[in-house]
Design a protein around this nucleic acid. Structure first.
Lengths: 344, 344
DNA sequence: TTGAAAGCGCTAACAC
DNA sequence: GTGTTAGCGCTTTCAA
């Protein structure tokens, strides 16, 4: 049986010091109304008694939560884990709380979580949408409630929204240009759904580069699907079945690249020996441990930090709302230790 | 300028249906007091108007939050990312909310987050402590407030607490026994602080195995430190400076193993060619991608799920509190593709 | 089966 | 500087 101390409240402190609740409340929050000496007294007593403000009461009364909701498709995934950590860090520095939810790439969970977060009266919502999100009405709803909305990396196709993304098109273009200049002609793109920016834009960049260098696009080598390992695995199998194999593949995400790797390995195809792969993601890997893929690197630190910054700015300026878009640069990291690996 | 719809409240629904707030409140929660027909009417209207209960008001009034606080040292780290995902999943299935905070291995942040979570009046707290946590008074405080406490993987040295861990000692023992049977004699342990179970127990397992097989322990090859890449890096450098190198190292965590790898790489020492490494962690890596380390595998799925389950049980049985301890088995995964890598 | 009254713990607005 | 009053939106008695 647990002994349960009744939590101390403002009133308790007030009684002990023979002042009103309001004085205590203000003193504790460092309000200039209250004299230095009483403030000190109050704080000392609060400390002594281990007073902890009841956040729910405070938020209910003040009609703010000082909380930002975060909705991501995945956690156990380097890219998102790093983004989440960056968001938490930035929020911590700005004295905001984060409430994280995970949609597991499922639109219905995403919707449910968004509703929960609205119920919690978060001040804003940072969202990276699922691969299957097509019903955008929920986002309208968020905005109509005056809750700020910033999309992070994965953005739905709708007008007047704020977002922090990378320059997906240029990133993809660069990755393909690199391949072409290296002499590859047989180039594939295992890509993402086009109703989501990272699917659409990365495909565009691929197409533009191919077109610029007059390399014909072979339709069997261009796929559109989800962002998981399984998707990459299946996509490669489809290509394999057709018979002719590419020399180079641009994969839409790191998990997809892993899936391709697995499918290839099962067929005795060596990566990068037989096929070189580049994927989008964060090259957070160890500088000494050889990588199997090239990376179109997205700075997760920057993505997370900027999203929080944008969110807080919007929360602090409720009057003038202008959708903002921040587009970060990517950088192509070539796994130049590929050859080293052979010598390991 | 955002148009801001005033959120709909119970009263609004009540007026429209000519009933009282209470009726609405009960109907919405499916309370048996209310007749089927009114319940239906209420629910329909709520749906139509997009009513969202104000969670803060509800929690304040009912004095429950249906929320579990989660405090972990890191996110961007396979092991914790996987654990977090498992915790979220289990909570979702049981209709609990999770509020996640990250201590970044800093005791002061941990303390601060725990206080915040108490302020939010969470029903329970699942904590994986930082490498520097030594002041345990905060945990006493949690318990004295009647808030349930379950430690996950990393447990402080104190009596009467509940925890979900792996069998660290046996895991370490097995990893060393494997090495000895393979013929290694020069065995090192780059370990963790002994004030935390995973440092202490893993060291014990190491020592027991060495002792059982009468292999002398060389003190320069046994270190005690933190759990990060940097710690592994530094520890290996210390060993390197002394001149004599081990053939096998048991690293306390995966980041530590990575650090060792880096330090070795800089000195031209090949892993696993010159030194074989085993570390604790979750072998979530790709089955086809060769691993550089062996793993004492900890099931993150199981750790997370069991912690949530234990927590909910404790919350539901406020009367009889008995500290529970769940100890999961580990499994030694040998990177038998080590040789394959050379042929890649 | 329904509702009136009271209150969760706090803050905002305005007096004193 | 400090306190009074009112109320945030909901749930919980308990009476009708």
């Amino acid at each position: 049986m647990v002994k349960k101390t009744q939590p101390i409240k403002l009133e308790d402190l007030a009684k002990q010091l023979n002042v009103s609740k309001v004085t205590i409340s203000k003193a504790l929050r460092g309000h200039p109304d209250i004299s230095y000496s009483t403030t000190e007294k109050v704080k000392a007593l609060a400390e002594e008694l281990g007073y902890m403000p009841n956040i729910m009461a405070r938020n209910l009364s003040s009609r703010r939560s000082n909380t930002i909701g975060l909705v991501v498709p995945k956690i156990a995934h380097v890219f998102f884990a790093s983004i989440i950590e960056a968001v938490y860090d930035a929020a911590f520095e700005n004295n905001y709380e984060i409430v994280l939810t995970v949609s597991q790439e499922q639109a219905y969970r995403e919707r449910k979580h968004i509703l929960s977060l609205l119920s919690m009266r978060v001040d804003g919502l940072i969202i990276s949408i699922t691969e299957e999100t097509t019903d955008l009405s929920i986002f309208e709803k968020v905005m109509s409630h005056g809750v700020r909305l910033v999309f992070l990396d994965r953005v739905p196709n709708m007008p007047n929204i704020s977002s922090v993304t990378v320059n997906d098109r240029v990133g993809a273009f660069t990755a393909i240009e690199y391949a072409i200049k290296k002499g590859y002609k047989k180039i594939a793109h295992i890509g993402g759904y086009h109703n989501i920016n990272i699917g659409r834009e990365r495909f565009q960049g691929f197409r533009e580069a191919m077109s610029k260098y007059k390399i014909p696009i072979k339709s069997e080598w261009v796929t559109e699907g989800g962002f998981s390992e399984e998707d990459g695995y299946n996509a490669f199998h489809e290509i394999y079945k057709k018979g002719d194999l590419p020399e180079y593949i641009l994969a839409v995400t790191y998990p997809v690249a892993l899936g391709i790797y697995n499918a290839a390995a099962e067929k005795g195809i060596s990566i990068p020996g037989d096929i070189e792969i580049t994927c989008f993601g964060s090259n957070t890997f160890n500088k000494n441990i050889p990588s199997f893929f090239n990376f179109v690197n997205q700075s997760t630190k920057e993505l997370g930090t900027q999203a929080v910054k944008m969110m807080i700015e919007q929360i602090n300026n409720p009057k003038d709302f202008n959708p903002q878009k921040i587009v970060l640069d990517t950088e192509l990291f070539i796994a130049d230790n590929l050859s080293q690996r052979i010598a390991l």
